[in-house]
Design a protein around this nucleic acid. Structure first.
Lengths: 372, 372
DNA sequence: CTGAAAGCGCTTACAG
DNA sequence: CTGAAAGCGCTTACAG
């Protein structure tokens, strides 16, 4: 492998000079620059990024933790995330918890070993908040609340819920069925913002005197399980006239309705939550509440930038000040500060654990062929 | 940041010893080990992988280059790939060409800068074979032929074509329409194995006296464009009674057929090529030719292992022998050798540019609700 | 403007 | 079994 030393020798200069040329930094005479560049071309020199990484203690890589990209929702999120990160010169490490035995810990470990500069956390976690806050490295949560000081981004699910309820009420629905994750998660002090759309719909339908049942869909990592869910709905609630669930759930529900000869949207309306490509590939164009993936990705990237910056700053300060171990605590303080600032830029609200707002992204109701 | 030096100091030993303990290598007395481990716990020491990476000149990261994971095909491939790599302790860098201005060059560059140990190439490329062969780093191609010595893995598209033709002929189809990539690619000396299934179907239908037209689908990165394609087919060929295309194309074709009141499979049969989740979410369960993603991913990972090994070996040899620059050529030689070995393990055939076999994975015909 | 030196945090021969 | 030393390939103060 040809290194900087080889180039320096070939050009008859020092490695320092080669480095300056490569990085286009400092002052280098035109003569020197020309000689170095000639040598680089002759030897076909390509800098080794690993050495840089070590020195800078940076990899310019962000991990995105999702359950699996087999699910269209996470594939869409990941794709937009990658684009947004690439804009900022950051690479994307794909971290899917369904594909590693150790789950997210594996990736948190990589974060701590400095193989990544930060992680976007978009998968379910069993870990308690103190686990997350004790990591002290850049973390941004998507659609969940991990702990104080860890910035979060999520869609405006309450608005989504209102849009759905409005549609159902206005079109005269009498028995709606909501499909979602394990109901047990609902009690976890609102850790999962998604829950809010279900609760909103239930609340509004109750107010309008409309029957509303909840059915648990299979795990998000086991997409095939959703098919059983669709069948179960029709068996259990023969009079159902509205089904609301993720794109995947809505698609299989529509397919099953077709098989049973149930007219959509005449006798059954279907609303898909998410609005990924999957909603366009179903038997009919699904009516969707679309999450704004580009905006979500931009917000996540923005928060990540701030987190990285915050942890970086404190490191520099630490150098300037004392080098004792207690300085560590300043890292978290800095990070927390940055989060508060972000919150205020987005939505000014007090940030306590049970109702930490994070950055909220609007959703859109897009009528399709499955609602009246 | 607490480093090995801090641990060594705390434990009253040398860094070498700490290193040995951390890596569980060499001989360390129980006493030393205990002291070091205690110190590591006290200080909450976590090794910095970047330093290791530099020393070993390895990141244990593999890039997978795809057009975009918004497309279910590439999402599925990537998901399985990640799982397969994780099994081998390798991380997955997501490299989608649709999301970076510079396309694949960006990622090839990262490969050369040693930010990744190898790349799986599954996206379209305009580069000529000599571009790829001159890179001299581990590369494995999926469903395309990049150049001599670069191992390739692809499905048995000819078998897929035969399965499709058989179904069409047996069910009495009279006018089939194939949807696929730009027809211009067909001439590029069979660079794209996918082409083979189209050619096989065309050939067999011609032999049976069945009309067969070809329609170009929009770019794979622009999934929405497929909808226009579906509409165009019905406009242009009102008597079409069979449509064959990717899962996405088949889904929108089915949807459009429904809108036009065309009975499927009564008046129109639809066969989806790929067999991803998308085929299960369409209006009916699509009949598919399923590519064996787990097997494909396993084969790709296997080839990648061999490539990495081959390039590694030659590096070690080079050290043992002379350190002159001409030794570089041995790298490619070694890599090529490894490929030949792989070919022989899979399918013994001569490997020339125009018909390089690579590893061929069987496909499966799975009848659904869209064929008779 | 240029170069010698120290160092990023770890690993690995090599003496002892 | 343990430690001092050199080195992975580059960057960055710091003298000149």
């Amino acid at each position: 492998m040809v290194g900087m030393r080889d180039v320096a020798k070939q050009a008859g200069v020092s490695v320092s000079t080669v480095s300056l040329v490569v990085n286009n930094a400092g002052y280098v005479s035109d003569d020197m620059r020309a000689r170095v560049e000639a040598a680089m071309h002759q030897l076909n020199y390509i800098p080794n990024e690993l050495a840089r990484n070590l020195y800078r203690n940076r990899t310019n890589t962000i991990g995105i933790i999702v359950p699996t990209i087999l699910h269209p929702f996470f594939a869409t999120l990941t794709a937009h995330m990658q684009r947004e990160l690439a804009k900022r010169g950051l690479k994307t490490m794909l971290c899917s918890t369904a594909d590693v035995a150790t789950g997210e810990s594996e990736y948190v470990n990589m974060l701590q070993r400095h193989m990544m500069d930060g992680i976007i956390m978009a998968a379910h976690t069993e870990h308690q908040p103190d686990y997350w806050t004790s990591i002290r490295r850049p973390i941004v949560a998507f659609d969940r609340i991990l702990g104080t000081g860890i910035p979060a981004v999520h869609s405006d699910h309450e608005a989504g819920g209102r849009m759905i309820a409005r549609q159902l009420i206005d079109s005269g629905v009498r028995h709606a069925v909501l499909v979602g994750g394990p109901r047990s998660q609902f009690t976890q002090s609102m850790t999962f913002p998604t829950v809010r759309y279900h609760l909103t719909v239930e609340h509004m339908l109750a107010g309008a005197g409309i029957a509303c049942d909840y059915v648990e869909a299979g795990s998000v990592t086991d997409v095939v399980a959703h098919e059983a869910t669709a069948t179960a709905i029709f068996e259990r609630y023969p009079d159902v006239d509205a089904i609301i669930g993720s794109d995947v759930v809505a698609s299989v529900a529509l397919q099953e309705a077709g098989r049973r000869g149930i007219a959509v949207p005449g006798d059954l309306q279907i609303i898909a939550y998410d609005g990924t490509l999957a909603a366009d590939l179903a038997g009919k164009k699904l009516t969707v509440v679309r999450q704004d993936f580009p905006a979500i990705a931009a917000a996540l990237a923005e928060q990540m930038d701030q987190q990285i910056e915050a942890f970086d700053t404190s490191k520099r300060e630490r150098r300037g000040e004392s080098a004792d171990s207690s300085a560590d605590s300043s890292v978290v303080a800095d990070a927390a500060t940055s989060v508060d600032a972000a919150d205020q830029a987005g939505k000014a609200e007090p940030a306590n654990r049970s109702a930490e707002p994070g950055v909220v992204i609007p959703v859109t109701f897009i009528p399709g062929e499955t609602t009246r």
